[in-house]
């Protein structure tokens, strides 16, 4: 089956240019390409600019007529060293914290949300609708209302300033439950589940041996959404963590931004915070971005490789 799937994918991806042009028409081909490229510029140019900004002095940022220019390798090395050396390597400590928090939150949230979303999609149990509504309500709860009750709760359990104050709340992941629900609800063939039941599979076995393996694209999607949400989690940790040794990257970066003298108001009186355009700040931002890109590439492999092709053959 995997072999057949692979050939399917390859056949799909190698649709010949001539056939493709015939399907789209020349005008359609040009329009499609133009739209896609315009958006590519919109998404990518700011990032390229950010990449170059790590190599440019403030004077260079303003004086150059062309905004996407390379500064100097010296400046790049300085930015790198400044970030690594910040408060005796605290940046690396935060990086380590972030990886640990994100990893544990990710595993926990997936273990909880996949079974729940699956059973909401295929089950017929009393309370299903209530659970769906509650999921929706908890997704819509404004952060400003939740922060204080959560803080009091975690304080009661003596978890403030520990990693669990970040990880445990993050394991509650209603967004993931909904996505799982949508995925199985729209893509898992009902005949397949029924066939497995008729063959004497218990509900647990249907879930474990059928739904989970068929959910590879879902797993990839959920993994990167959860990773992204947890890696960038700012507001919760900002309130729950006061000790800078347990900060994650976003909270740590925020403290860097607040503490760096070059970024203080008054240093650069012109509005628009151009003093913010610091090679160091850009480098710190890259520290946040690169891991997400790596995870994305891996998770998208999952998303495109697994599909329901050939699940039910007539």
């Amino acid at each position: 089956m995997t072999g057949q799937k692979a050939t399917n994918n390859r056949a799909r991806s190698r649709m010949s240019l001539r056939r493709y042009l015939g399907e789209l028409g020349i005008v359609g081909y040009v329009i499609r390409l133009a739209i896609l490229l315009v958006f590519a510029i919109y998404f990518v140019v700011p990032l390229v600019w950010l990449l170059f900004a790590t190599t440019r002095d403030p004077s260079n940022l303003y004086s150059n007529w062309f905004p996407l220019t390379f500064g100097s390798l010296d400046r790049l090395a300085t930015s790198w060293n400044n970030i690594i050396a910040y408060q005796n390597g605290e940046m690396l400590l935060w990086m380590g914290n972030s990886i640990r928090y994100t990893g544990l939150s990710l595993l926990g949230s997936l273990a909880i949300c996949i079974p729940a979303g699956y059973i909401l999609a295929i089950g017929h149990f009393p309370g299903r609708r209530v659970l769906l509504w509650l999921t929706l309500i908890t997704m819509l709860l404004p952060v400003s209302a939740m922060v204080l009750p959560l803080f009091l709760e975690l304080n009661l359990a003596h978890l403030i300033d520990t990693q669990w104050a970040v990880i445990l709340p993050a394991m509650f992941f209603p967004f993931g439950v909904y996505l799982t629900y949508v995925y199985y609800g729209s893509s898992l063939p009902g005949e397949l589940v029924d066939a497995a039941r008729v063959d004497g599979c218990s509900e647990l076995r249907v879930f474990w041996n059928l739904a989970l393996p068929l959910g590879r694209p879902l797993l990839g999607l959920l993994a990167f959404i959860s990773f992204n949400a947890n890696w960038n989690n700012f507001f919760g940790p900002y309130v729950m963590l006061n000790n800078d040794k347990v900060y994650n990257m976003p909270v740590g970066l925020n403290s860097v931004v607040a503490a760096t003298s070059a970024l203080r108001p008054g240093f650069n009186p012109t509005p628009g915070a151009t003093s913010f355009v610091q090679a160091d700040a850009a480098m710190a931002a890259l520290f946040m971005i690169v891991p997400v890109v790596i995870v994305f590439i891996f998770s998208m492999r999952y998303v495109t490789k697994g599909a329901f092709t050939g699940g039910v053959k007539g």
Partner: peptide
């Protein structure tokens, strides 16, 4: 299958709300 989710929802969603 839904139980762990229900527990976490009670503690970190409905309760605080």
């Amino acid at each position: 299958l839904a139980l762990p989710y229900i527990i976490f929802m009670a503690i970190f969603g409905i309760g605080p709300a």
